[in-house]
Each structure stands twice: as structure tokens, then as C-alpha cells.
């Protein structure tokens, strides 16, 4: 996905934000809002998450002057959102609920025989690379639908780790989860996507 990946691009953007350039804010809003929403949605419902991300951007106008660049801009923004979202949760005396107890997806678990071997082995054979597969609009739409159906906790973990390419430590920090619980969230989400692609390849239907 598109991000300000080059150090120099990011430095130029940060300069622009510091100088209060509206055009640079618009650019940054488009680049970083999806990731910020993924963080906020881990903790909050959709409406509160949007409100939190909106407020964060206004905060950034002043806060960017104090940004020291110890982390990248993306990580810094994600931490601001996480802190605000956690405060919001605390004020409303609520907690994030997620199931970390079983790493195997129930649908996949049913595909094993009692002796622990595959009863219904994977039928999927990838012959194209991921980029070519994504050119299939129907598969891309189907992936969108299934990503949207994942529990928020799994989707946020997956988005931050895979799409926004955060390191595990950063995701754990931002989402306030232990390393082992993050592993469960990621694995559960990946299995769902695997099952979806398998069905799509077999039946042509989402």
C-alpha cells in the first residue's frame, strides 16, 4: 500500500506539516487515516473511532512541532490514536474483548480426523503470484468483504502487521496485547482469509 516509505519523502512531509501547509495535511490524511482507523477500531465502535481519528488530526497540528522523529511518522500517529482510544475506553469503563484461547479456526479444526491428520486437506493451489491474483476484481471484492467480516481485533492486528508493515513489537504496543496473543489474532485472521480464497478458487463465489 501507499505510504511515505522513503525517509526523504517523510521528512519533506513532516516539514510541510510543521509549517501548517494545508496541502501536506491533506496528503498525510489520505496516507495515514486507514492505519489510524485500524488502530481506533481495535478499541472502539465505528462512530467513536472516526471521532477519535478526526480529533487526532487536529491535535497533530500542534503536536507535530514536538515530534522528534524517534519513531516513524506512521508509528507516532498510531500511538497518538491508541492513547486517545484507550482513554475513551477508560472513561466509558469498557474493555476490549477478544478470544485468545484457541489459535485454530473452528472451521479449519473440523477438517482434521480424530487422529490429528487432515480429513479434508487444502484444495487450494496457487499458480499465480499475489499481485496477479489481485488483478481479479471479483477476488479483490471478496477479500474486502471477508476482511470487513473479521472481528475488529483480528482485522486491526492483520492490517497493522501485514498492510501497514509494523513490526510485532510495535503492534503489541499500539494494541496493548502480549506477543503470544498477537500471534493468535494474526493466525486466526490469516486462516479466515485462506478459507475464503479456497472457497473462491473452488466455486468462483465469494
Amino acid at each position: 500500500m501507499e505510504t511515505a516509505t522513503h525517509q526523504s519523502d517523510e521528512s519533506i512531509l513532516i516539514q510541510g506539516l510543521r509549517s501548517g501547509s494545508e496541502a501536506d495535511f491533506q496528503k498525510a490524511v489520505r496516507l495515514y487515516t486507514p492505519g489510524m482507523m485500524a488502530v481506533a477500531r481495535y478499541y472502539l465502535d465505528s462512530a467513536s473511532a472516526e471521532e477519535t481519528v478526526q480529533d487526532c488530526w487536529v491535535t497533530v497540528i500542534d503536536a507535530i512541532q514536538k515530534f522528534e522523529g524517534r519513531s516513524g511518522l506512521k508509528t507516532w500517529l498510531h500511538r497518538i490514536v491508541a492513547n486517545r482510544a484507550k482513554n475513551h475506553l477508560r472513561k466509558n469503563k469498557r474493555e476490549v474483548s477478544a478470544d485468545f484461547s484457541e489459535s485454530l479456526d473452528p472451521e479449519l479444526a473440523n477438517r482434521f480426523a480424530p487422529n490429528g491428520r487432515w480429513a479434508t486437506p487444502p484444495s487450494l493451489r496457487f499458480e499465480e503470484d499475489a499481485e496477479s491474483l489481485m488483478e481479479n476484481g471479483a477476488l479483490s471484492d471478496c477479500l474486502d468483504q471477508h476482511l470487513a467480516r473479521l472481528p475488529e481485533t483480528q482485522r486491526s492486528a492483520l492490517m497493522l502487521y501485514e498492510a501497514h508493515q509494523h513490526k510485532s513489537d510495535d503492534v503489541c504496543n499500539i494494541l496493548d496485547v502480549s506477543a503470544s496473543n498477537l500471534r493468535v489474532l494474526l493466525h486466526r485472521a490469516r486462516q479466515k482469509i485462506f478459507l475464503m480464497v479456497e472457497t473462491f478458487q473452488e466455486t468462483g463465489e465469494c
Binding site: P34, M37, W57, M134, M159, R190, V197
Partner: peptide, 25 residues
């Protein structure tokens, strides 16, 4: 397959922000 599914998620390009939210921001 699991590895390929992971690559698919990374290659999926439609992580676009909601236009209405962007407009408000």
C-alpha cells in the same frame, strides 16, 4: 496456501480511507 493468503493481504491495494471521513477531517 497460508503464505500465499498472507501475500494476498499485503498485495491488496484497496485500503482506501472512507471519502466522507476524509472530507470531514
Amino acid at each position: 496456501n497460508l503464505r500465499a493468503s498472507t501475500d494476498l493481504i499485503q498485495a491488496h491495494s484497496s485500503y482506501k480511507p472512507d471519502p466522507e471521513l476524509v472530507r470531514r477531517i
